[in-house]
Structures are given as C-alpha cells and as structure tokens.
Design a protein around this nucleic acid. Structure first.
Length: 568
RNA sequence: GAUUCCGUAGCUCAGCUGGUAGAGCAAUACACUUUUAAUGUAUGGGUCCUGGGUUCGAGCCCCAGCGGGAUCACCA
C-alpha cells in the first residue's frame, strides 16, 4: 500500500546493490567506538597524540564529493565531526569499488557509518577525521530533511513545521540538535531533584496508575476496564491519596515522579498525560515546605544553568530564594483593589459581575474567589511568588489554617504567570476530612463536575492516624518549560498527544471487492479476476485504475498473459 | 469551543487578473585531491490536503470536510 517517492525507490535500490556487492547494509556485529565527536572537539588540541587511532560511529549528515577525495560530516549522539575520505586510502589496491561505488553512489545522507582513522586539522582549521576504514552500519531508505547552517549560524531550509516535528520527533532530534538539548535539560532537572530528595533520606516510591477511585484532584479521568475482575478502572488523575497512605504506614518522606492523566482540553500548557512530582514529609508544615521548595528550585536552576537568574521569554527571572509570600486575599487586594475576605457568595458574585468575570450557578465561594484570582492576579506573578492561605471550599485535602478561620494552609508557587507547584499542610483529622468530602459531594450535586470523589479506604487510613505532614506537587513539564525557555508543553514532551495522522486510503465499493479477491489469491490472471469481480466493463476499468493509482495493486504483462498482483 | 491564518516536489517556499505547475536545497549523471550553505553542467521528480460547486478553463473563486499553527475561552 505504501506509495514510494522516487528518492525512496532509489535508496531501496542502493540497499539491494550493497547486498549484491557482499556488503550487509545492516550488519550484526558490534562496532565498538572509542571516542565521540564532542570529545574530539574539546580535547584534540591539547592531547593530539591520543587521537591517532580512533573509531567513531554515527549518521552521515553531509557530503562534499570532489573526485577521488571527499569531505563529509558524521553525527553521533554528542555532535558532528567532519571527515576527509580519500579513494586510495580506503581502497589501497586496484579495486576502487568501496569509494567509487559504495561511498559515492550507494550511500546517502542519513546512513549510519562506522569510521576508523586519525584526527588532523584541515588547511581551513577544522578539526577533522582522516578516514582509513569505512563500514556501513545501517542504510537509511527514507531521505532525511537537510538543514543547513552557514558560517553566521543562520539556518537554511529548517525543519520547522510543528506538526511534522512532533509527529516525527526522531527526525526533529536528528536534524535539530537544540531539540535534543531541551530533553537533556529535562532529564537533568529530574535527576537533580531526585538527588536532592535522596540526600534528605526520602524514599522514591511507585503508586498505582490504575485506580478504582480517581481521587486526589478534581478532573475528568480516562476510564478503562479490567477483564478478570470485570470492573471499571481509571487512569490516575493524581497520586496524592496513595502517597499519604504510605505516610500513614510509617515512612517519614516519600516522593514519586509519575505520569498523571486528565481527560480534558489540550493546548500549549496541557497534554492529556503529564508528569508531576509529589512529595510528602511527616512532621512538617507548609511553612517548612516553602523553604524546602526555595532551596530545591534554587539548587536545580544553579546546577542546570550555573546561575539562578535566567531568561524566560523577554523577562529575567531570578530563582534564588526566598520568594515573595502573599496571601490569596492580599493578592486580590493588591492587583484588583478589592477586599474579598469578608464577602459572602452573593457579594462575590457582585464583584465578578463588576469585573466582567463570567461565572455560573454551580460555583461556590471558593471557586468564585479562584475565578477572580485567575482573572486579575495570576498573570502579574512573574518572579517566583507564593500565594498562600486559600479559602477552605476549594481545597478539601488541606488542613484548616492555624489562626485564620475559613482558610486552609496551602500555597501555590507562581512563576511567569503560571502555577508550577501546589502544597499543603495536609489534613490529617479523619472526621474533618470526611466532612470535607461530604461538602464536595454537595458541590457535585449542584453540578460541579470537578468536585472530588469520596475515598473510603483513604478515610480509613486516616482513622488509624496520620502524623502531621506537608505535601507538595510540582508540574515537571511546566518547570521544564521555564528552565528551557519554551512556550509550549509540546516542546518539552518527546511525543505530545496528536490527532490520528490520517485516514486509511479510502477505496470505493468496487475497489474493496477486487482488493478482497486479491487478498485470497495474488498474483492472479486478469481475466479470472475480472470474472470473479463480476463488474461491468466500465466499473471494472475505473476500479482497477483506482487500485493501481493508489499503489494497492500492480498489473504485470508477460508475453500474452496479464496478471494482477497485490502490493505491500 | 470561538476567531484567524495555513496546507503546492523528499525539505524550505514562490506561484501575478482564473489561461498547460516554479526556485533553492536534496536526488540522479558527469567533472574536480583540503572543501565547508563546496562548485560547474545536465536530468528526473507533483493526488497543488480531500470532496463538491462556479467556469470554455480552478493551485488561485465559492461551499463542506480533514489536518495544523496562532490568539482567546475552558482546564486549580
């Protein structure tokens, strides 16, 4: 069914030709390398004698052929290296096939090669590999987009279409080296965080992704079904309630990096699956947690960038702690000029109307305050800022504030106008927790589809007793966006969710009929096939032209016999 | 979900007022032993996203659909 371009056919032919010459384009033996491109560029000048006998492997990314000598570039995981290859070096005898035929004609950009030789500096000063031996490691049969860079670093013919970059991330990573760096940074962020937590003696754990009750957050879940148990299961929208069970069980500190799944909208800051890091530490409160987060983020930023002040878009953001702390009410007072602390639900509705904020009847007091905050405050929080002390109605898992009635001990960390972390002094009174869940059920009854579900087993665990605990969640994708200066979540996910690529090749009824017949027998004599198909002459003709045109079937004429065969 | 822009060769993109589809790179062939966005000459390569419509004639105009981008809304 695959319709191949001229260039793809050409490369398949080259693959065959290599085999005919006795060269396996996909050899089994390992090709042990002893150096990387980056190593050579960094160290050759100082330790020239170490680079007399090197082996390097990677993709052929450019070629400049000039008669019996050529230049090219090979790209390994660390970068690119120019090589110089001369006919009489790799073909010392009479037979010049390896250079004239294999290198010049049968290889192409994108092929993997193993090269042996020594490093030298060209007349123009470029550190290069003088090739003495060349081995084909893997033939590429699909042409790679060629991205060129000139001396000023300008990119020509860039591979920039976001759709193709995300759908074919492997190509993106191959031809756009800076993309690789984003993901290396992402990995470093996670490993630095992990190191920080491990150094404090906290335990990395794994909790269920398939959950019978999707608790711990307010979001629509993905549902699935377990056959043996014959029961519905949900992909987790949060892991909070399981991590707390582990604190109940006696661990002092537990953390988990993991995927969460929310069946909601997709845009530049939301993907259906995303990565969060949640940590719970016993005998701590949210004040302690704020200090911990400051230290954590400051250290991670320092390790990644070597400094704490970094550019995000057109802004400079300083991740060195301590961060500004502002209560939810004070922030609304500051940015909207309104004191909402004493207002009841009706009063808040009045404020929303005055500020032209859309609300609906399902919204309770907490939700209304959150709407005002979202509309008036959030975007102003550029430098790292803690917003603290949220209304109790919007936070059913956090402990009541130690001094302020109606509030809970919660903070969220905002940077560049976006929330990147959320933390509580955790609610550990089982009676209070049950009442909060019941309030959520009432909100659900009002039509709030984000209200949290009751989790009886979690309540039972609290009844046994949970020590005072502080918990934190950090959105790893959003933190990575900040630290890599990317504006969309797709840029920090290897494989962001996309719509299905394209519909199957559509066939008419007649074409389908012939296709089914061909699946039973192929190749088949054309007369027999036509008879079996039972179509009128015109319909037969149109259907056959359609099938051959789509590359589904092929008509072959040998002497007097004409046969039809199915193509892959 | 709304608005708006886009979909043309393997890649990046032109395409006039509606009149037989173009360039650069890549590919193929030839030349060339230190080039580097190598160069020179020649050649091949197209479902102009899909389906309708208007028209003597549609890549271009109209309608519908598919896919994507941006902005906004929603999503703690």
């Amino acid at each position: 069914m695959q319709v191949l371009s001229e260039q793809e056919l050409e490369r398949r032919k080259d693959r065959e030709e290599l085999m005919k010459l006795g060269i396996n384009p996909y050899p089994a033996p390992a090709f042990p390398i002893n150096v990387t491109a980056d190593d050579i560029h960094r160290n050759y000048e100082n330790r020239k004698t170490d680079y007399k006998d090197i082996k390097i492997a990677g993709r052929l990314m450019s070629r400049r052929i000039m008669g019996s000598a050529s230049f090219g570039e090979i790209q390994d995981a660390s970068g690119r290296l120019q090589f110089y290859i001369r006919r009489d070096d790799i073909c010392p005898g009479e037979d010049k096939t390896l250079y004239n035929t294999v290198f010049k004609k049968l290889l192409g950009i994108g092929d993997f090669l193993g090269l042996k030789g020594y490093i030298f500096t060209t007349q123009t000063g470029e550190i290069s590999l003088h090739v003495t031996e060349m081995i084909v490691l893997s033939k590429s049969v699909k042409p790679l987009p060629i991205v060129k860079r000139d001396e000023e670093g300008n990119v020509h013919d860039g591979f920039t279409d976001p759709e193709m970059r995300y759908r074919q991330r492997y190509v993106d990573l191959t031809v756009n080296p800076e993309v690789k760096n984003t993901f290396i940074t992402r990995s470093k962020i996670i490993s630095q965080m992990r190191r920080y937590f491990d150094d404090h003696g906290w335990l990395e754990v794994e909790t269920p992704i398939l959950q019978a009750v999707h608790g711990g957050a307010a979001a629509r879940p993905f549902g699935t079904h377990h056959n043996t148990l014959d029961m519905p299961l949900f992909l987790r929208i949060a892991n909070e309630l399981y991590l707390k069970r582990l604190i109940v069980g006696g661990f002092d500190g537990v953390y988990e990096f993991g995927k969460m799944f929310r069946n909601e909208g997709m845009d530049r800051t939301h993907n259906p699956e995303f990565t969060s890091m949640e940590i719970y530490v016993a005998y701590k409160d949210y004040i302690w947690m704020m200090e911990m987060v400051e230290e954590l983020i400051e250290q991670v930023t320092e390790k990644i960038h070597g400094k704490t002040e970094i550019a995000v878009g057109d802004k400079l953001i300083n991740f060195a702690g301590p961060y500004r702390r502002l209560t939810m009410y004070d922030s609304i007072k500051e940015y909207a000029g309104i004191d909402v602390s004493e207002l009841d639900e009706a009063g808040l509705r009045g404020v929303c109307k005055q500020l032209a904020i859309e609300v609906d009847d399902t919204m309770g007091r907490g939700k209304l305050i959150d709407e005002i905050f979202g509309a008036k405050v959030e975007a102003n929080l550029i430098q790292p800022t803690y917003i603290t002390d949220y209304p109790i109605e919007m936070t059913p898992l956090a402990k009541k504030h130690r001094t302020e009635p109606g509030l809970v001990e919660r903070f969220e960390l905002f940077v560049n106008g976006k929330e990147i972390a959320n933390a509580y002094t955790e609610l550990n009174d089982p009676i209070d927790q049950r009442e909060r869940f019941e309030d959520q059920l009432k909100l659900a009854a009002r039509g709030d589809d984000e209200a949290m579900a009751m989790d009886e087993d979690f309540l039972r665990s609290l009844e046994y007793g949970m020590p005072p605990t502080s918990g934190l969640g950090i959105g790893i994708d959003r933190l990575t966006m900040l630290l890599t200066n990317k504006t969309t979540i797709q840029e920090v996910l290897f494989f962001p969710q996309m719509r299905p690529e394209k519909k199957q090749v559509e066939m008419s009824e007649e074409e389908k009929g012939i296709f089914e017949l061909l699946k039973l027998e192929s190749p088949v004599a054309i007369g027999l096939l036509k008879e079996k198909a039972g179509l009128s002459g015109k319909k037969w003709d149109v259907a056959m032209k359609g099938l051959t045109g789509k590359g589904v079937a092929k008509v072959t004429k040998e002497g007097d016999s004409i046969t039809v065969s199915l193509l892959d």
